Every structure is written in structure tokens, then in C-alpha cells.
Amino acid sequence: MLTEANESPAVVERLLRGQARVIGEVGAWLRDHPPALVTMAARGSSDHAATFFKYLMEVSTGIPVASIGPSVASVYKQRLRLPSAVHFTVSQSGASPDIVALQAAAKDGGARTVAIVNVADSPVAREADLTILLGAGPEKSVAATKSFITSAAALAAIVSSAAGDTGFKRGLDALPEALSRTSMIDMAASQEVIAASHSLYTCGRGTGLGIAMEAALKCKETAGLHAEAFSTAEIMHGPLRLVERGFPVIGFVQDDMSFDNNCEAMQKLSNLGARTITFSSKPASGLSVLVPSTGHGLLDPLVALLPAYRLIEAVTRQKGFDPDQPANLLKVTETM
């Protein structure tokens, strides 16, 4: 897991260079003839990349993004009505029968289809109108790391192309280097907090939410920790009841229009006794993990995820578990 996570900067750089033509073509679909709706199909970590994309797309272009439950097509056999829509399938393997069925249903319903996959010779890749190949190479650990970061980077590149925003493009170009510079971050203090816990929250807003969801999943599947992800706004409702002295909360706080609200929320959690760990390019309350910035706040939660992966991997080993072979799980899960 750690070795594969550390390959992420190089893989992202290779993706942005090698898949630029196809990414530009997908971006042109969205820019030149904006669809009324973009739909998504994904499972597990890939679904968190889809959440990251949802906020990027909606904030940057105003095009709404909806996730369709794969069982609508695979189990319930419902036809879809998606004239003028663009449908994205995000999958490391591109093989799960439910997302294959949903892509077919989307195409039958009138949508143009885009596959973002790591396995070139997969059913999803073969049947999509356009395919973006992640090129992440073999991923032997059950916990997806480099394929997640690369999927999110591919989706961000599509949004950058669709939006035609030069600031966004500069941030995307800076992403591999920002990821590389996270190798210098010391996570020892944060590791001590998380290793002593049995339950925790992760949180974020905007593009930070999908990253918080991904971090929570990794806490569960590798370290065996009960971790729940919430919007930093939503955590102030019912979930606040469980926050007591010493309860860990990991926050992803990017430097964008949500920054002040996120900081206020993390401070409130700290005031209630939570042990807060904040990943941000700017200092924040609690244990402040400073991460390199791309210069574009919406992209920075993806940078923060790499040191979070390293933190979770270290905690997993400290607890005596194997992060590469977690109990009860397989690398490829084929669901209907």
C-alpha cells in the first residue's frame, strides 16, 4: 500500500501527459455542447473520486452531476432516459457486472459514455464511447491508493478542459509536484492520536468531502477503525452528539471559499474536546498538517490525501494488521 501510494505523483504526471488528447475530447463535449446532466457510476473508492468530481464540475461549470445506483440497471432492469447526458464510469478493474450494466443502460438511454479505468481490456473500456486509461500499473494491495488519486486527477483534468479556466489549468499542472512534496510531511503526532482510537470522524466540504469519504474507507478497510465521513456542515447536526473529549476528527480544509466556515467548524469541534487533525495548505486549529498547495484550492484536498494514506498505513501496521491483505476483502469485488 505504501509503495503504491508513493508512486502516485509519477503516475499522475504520466496520465496528464499521455491521455491529454482524450481528456481534451471529453472536455470539448462538456464545453461546446453542455449537457443538461452528467451522470456517474462507481463503487467503493471510485465512488469517492466521483464525489470529488461532482463538486469540481458543479462549482466550475454549473453542470449538475448525479450518481446513479448501478442496481437500477443490473437488478431492477430499469431503462434510463438520458438524452444529451454524458455518463462517466469510474473503475479500477472495469469489470463489475453492475457498472457494466449501468453503462449499457446509459448508452441505450441516449447518453455519451466515458470510461475511466486502469484495465484497458475490460468490459467497461471496450464498450465506452471514449476511454481514459489511468496507466497506474498493477495495484497489488487490496486498498486502492494510486488508482484513486489518478482517477481523481483524470476527472479534474476533464473539468479543467471543460471550464477553460487558466488558473485551474496551472493548478492541475502543479499537481504532480505538489504530491511529490508531501513526502517531507511528518505524521508522527497524528499517528499517535489515530492509533489510540477505536472510532473517528473525517470531514470536508466541497471537493474535500470526497477525500474525507476516501480517508474514512481506508481507516475501515485497513486499520479496522470505525470511521464515518461527513460534510463539515452536516457534522454539526446529529453526528455532533458523539463528539466527546479525546474523540478524533480528521478535517480536510482547502483554501477556497469554504475555508473560513471549515476552520470555524474544526475549532468548534476542538472546543468540545475533539482531537482535531486538519489537513490544509494554511495553518488551522488542533494538529495542523500543512500540505503543499497546487495554487488552486479546489484541487488541494487531493494533495492532502497522499499523506493521509501514509498516516493510515502506518497506523494499520502499528495495530499489527497487514494493510495489503485486510480481513474479509478482495481486490476486485464483482457485484450485481
Rank of each mutant, 00 (worst) to 15 (best):
R205T: 02
R205P: 00
R205M: 10
G206M: 12
G206W: 04
G206T: 14
T207D: 02
T207G: 00
T207R: 02
T207Y: 01
T207H: 05
L209Y: 15
G210D: 02
G210M: 07
G210P: 11
I211D: 09
I211A: 08
I211F: 07
I211E: 10
M213A: 13
M213S: 15
M213T: 06
E214H: 02
A215Q: 02
A216F: 06
A216N: 11
L217S: 11
C219H: 06
C219P: 04
K220Q: 12
T222W: 13
A223E: 12
A223R: 10
A223H: 08
G224Y: 10
G224E: 08
L225H: 07
L225G: 03
L225Q: 03
H226Q: 07
H226L: 14
A227K: 04
A227V: 06
E228K: 15
F230I: 03
F230N: 05
S231W: 05
S231N: 08
T232I: 05
T232C: 02
T232M: 03
T232Y: 01
A233Q: 14
A233W: 05
A233C: 12
A233L: 15
E234I: 10
E234M: 11
E234Q: 14
E234T: 07
E234D: 15
I235K: 01
I235D: 02
I235M: 01
I235A: 03
M236P: 04
M236A: 11
M236N: 11
H237C: 12
H237Y: 15
G238S: 14
G238W: 10
G238K: 11
G238E: 10
G238Q: 09
G238Y: 11
P239Y: 15
P239T: 14
L240F: 10
L240K: 14
L242H: 12
L242F: 13
V243W: 05
V243D: 04
V243A: 09
V243Y: 07
E244L: 11
E244T: 15
R245N: 13
G246M: 08
G246W: 09
F247Q: 13
F247M: 10
F247V: 10
F247L: 08
P248V: 07
V249G: 13
I250N: 01
I250F: 05
F252T: 00
V253A: 07
V253R: 01
V253W: 00
Q254Y: 04
Q254R: 08
Q254P: 05
Q254F: 01
D256W: 07
D256P: 09
M257D: 10
M257S: 12
S258Y: 07
S258K: 08
S258V: 06
F259K: 05
D260H: 04
D260C: 00
D260G: 01
N262A: 06
N262G: 15
N262V: 01
E264T: 05
E264R: 12
E264M: 06
A265D: 00
A265L: 00
M266R: 00
M266I: 01
Q267Y: 02
Q267L: 07
Q267G: 03
K268Q: 07
L269Y: 04
L269Q: 09
L269N: 03
S270M: 06
S270T: 08
N271V: 03
G273W: 07
G273V: 14
G273C: 11
A274D: 08
A274V: 09
R275V: 01
R275G: 01
R275N: 12
R275P: 00
R275Y: 03
T276G: 08
I277C: 02
I277A: 01
I277L: 04
T278F: 00
T278Y: 01
T278H: 00
T278P: 00
S280W: 00
S280D: 02
